[in-house]
Amino acid sequence: MLRNILWESLLVVLAGSVFALAANEISPRGLSLTRNYFPAAAGANPAVVRESPASSTNQSPAEMLVSEIKTRGLQLAVSNQVVAWFKDPRRQTQKLIFIDARNAEEYQAGHVPGAWLFDPYHPDQYFAAILPVCQAAEQIVVYCHGGDCDDSLTAAGLLQDVGIPGSKIYIYGGGMNEWPATGLPLETGAQNSGQFLKATP
């Protein structure tokens, strides 16, 4: 009887694995099995909480993110810089661009007006659109949610991997959690949709 159960469970594992492989392949949200989704943060995972802080780096997730930004040769942008850049006339000529490193759903719900969507977990869908813009831009501001979110760092890492110099990439650490407090509007829907939400600090 035990042998039967073991055989049955082995069959379940095999059938379940085949089903899972096929479903992941068919699903439009499926993950690649061979891609490193976190190339930028190979040395640090800001979201990890360690049992004994004394044995680790003694850094908060935000501090770990800042040190990772520096290690990668990127720059950290703070709120007042971002506000100034948003009002910079270079933004109109795409010499200064904002990149939203969240997913399409979150982007549609509200993003920095005119920002380009670049979901770092599905980069192939966005590279064709954003790569020429990034190459032409003098300054690129990448953001995600803020706090311990490192998707902006992941997106910046992918841009560096395709030859965009880190010296012109700025990570807006406060991200979308902080943006409403700047008093600047939020754009909803597609890029340049013209639909805005009033800032609610």
Binding site: G16, S17, F19, A20, L21, A23, N24, G30, L31, S32, L33, T34, R35, Y37
Partner: peptide, 12 residues
């Protein structure tokens, strides 16, 4: 990647 991609469908 393999665990994250396959485990949910395996549970289904």
């Amino acid at each position: 990647d393999t665990i994250a991609a396959l485990l949910p469908w395996f549970e289904v």
